[in-house]
Write a protein that binds this DNA or RNA. Structure first.
Lengths: 217, 217
DNA sequence: CAAAAACTTGACTACTTGGTCAAAATGCAG
DNA sequence: CTGCATTTTGACCAAGTAGTCAAGTTTTTG
């Protein structure tokens, strides 16, 4: 995973054709499901090819290496995953901004749990494929938002809390429901599937965190 | 992982000898480090044998299947991992009890991050090896403690929060520092290694959660 | 200290799996 | 509708890996 091998000399045609677009999508969709369930090593190209409804060599025509699929998937996911954080607005009301952020993250955890798991798995294993992304893109973004939170704290609009830890706490709690889904289900049983569950979760998380950071008068 | 194969007929001697004790420990210690880093599929028996300083067939003399090592490790870990939860005392002061629990969990996350990661990886992949444990042992324990928290809420000693979600939030936040260590490091940099970091983390987590669940007068 | 039990390992097998290749099938521009 | 480019695949290969085995070495025990 660390060293990128580039053996193949053949290249896909310059212009992306209609068929390419369709098949790449088929492959990536199939791969997301499998990678997020079994991890990088636990996934075989055959599995992905099967799910995508094509032969293995055909799949390798579009993505010459297994790694390529995996990295493409992570890249595709990450941008979307981070966008709600980018939207935190220094000029908005602190509690309102954070409520919006937390709500958005819980929604994403429910609608794209595979993406969350793919990412969790990658980081859990030491982020061999996206380590660079973390320091080059995630870190500055978080620092920017941490600075905003710090001014809010300074202005007495939030209780005196460390912004990094607050952000980690939001990530941890919201993604928990996607990443540890099996555990949540094992404990809460049928409740998890029920209609209002997401709202109930959001309610609980928001209550605790927002009360936890509201300034004590 | 789903189907347990039992091919080997030979058995280890009934009585555990001194050498057995030493070597099983060596193997399990080596395996924890490797499994927690690379996952089940990503780990090879050779790697473990290497790290344990013995030949592969020798390792297989003690654990006839790779699975056996993995499952033993999970079992060993789980009991210890859950013990702080079991200690929550219905007759104690709610805030104090939860403070103690959270503190214990953060301490464990720092001292045994590999155990946390091993478990996280297993659950993330659908808990194929310990699914049964979750419903048979974890669920009742959590239900018991949830009932306690519920009486505390009923008595007005805590804000009206759902006990399950509170417990999940504690798990999520505390384990985050072990499971997502790479990410935490990428963002916070050198601070993570520094002496007081655990205390700072505990402080931040405790502040938010405990304020978040304290009853509003 | 000798025999039995426990432990250790080099060499091997069977199987999985990422990736190759050459040839066939299909799509498409003129 | 023809010829070139693109797409598809069966058959294959090499590497890696879980697990076996039989023969050796060490430890324990009577």
């Amino acid at each position: 995973m660390a060293k990128a091998a580039r053996r193949k000399t053949e290249q896909l045609p310059e212009k992306t054709t209609r068929i390419q677009e369709i098949n790449r999508r088929l492959i990536l969709d199939a791969a997301l499901e499998i990678f997020s369930t079994y991890g990088f090593r636990g996934t075989t190209i055959d599995q992905i090819a099967d799910k995508a409804g094509m032969s293995k060599p055909n799949l390798l025509y579009y993505f010459p290496r297994k790694q390529n699929i995996y990295v493409t998937l992570l890249e595709e996911t990450l941008a979307e995953w981070l966008s709600p954080l980018a939207e935190i607005d220094a000029d908005g009301d602190p509690i309102e901004q954070l409520r919006k952020y937390i709500t958005a993250k819980i929604k994403m955890s429910e609608s794209h749990p595979e993406a969350s798991r793919l990412f969790a798995n990658e980081v859990l294993h030491g982020a061999p494929a996206i380590g660079e992304f973390l320091t080059k893109h995630l870190k500055p973004l978080v620092e920017e938002k941490a600075a905003i939170i710090r001014t809010w704290v300074g202005a007495g609009k939030l209780a005196p809390i460390d912004p990094f830890h607050l952000i980690f706490m939001i990530w941890a709690t919201t993604q928990h429901y996607a990443d540890f889904d099996v555990q949540v289900r094992a404990i809460m049983g049928s409740q998890v599937g029920r209609p209002g569950f997401r709202e109930q979760t959001a309610q609980a998380v928001l209550t605790i965190i927002l009360n936890g950071i509201r300034p004590r008068s």
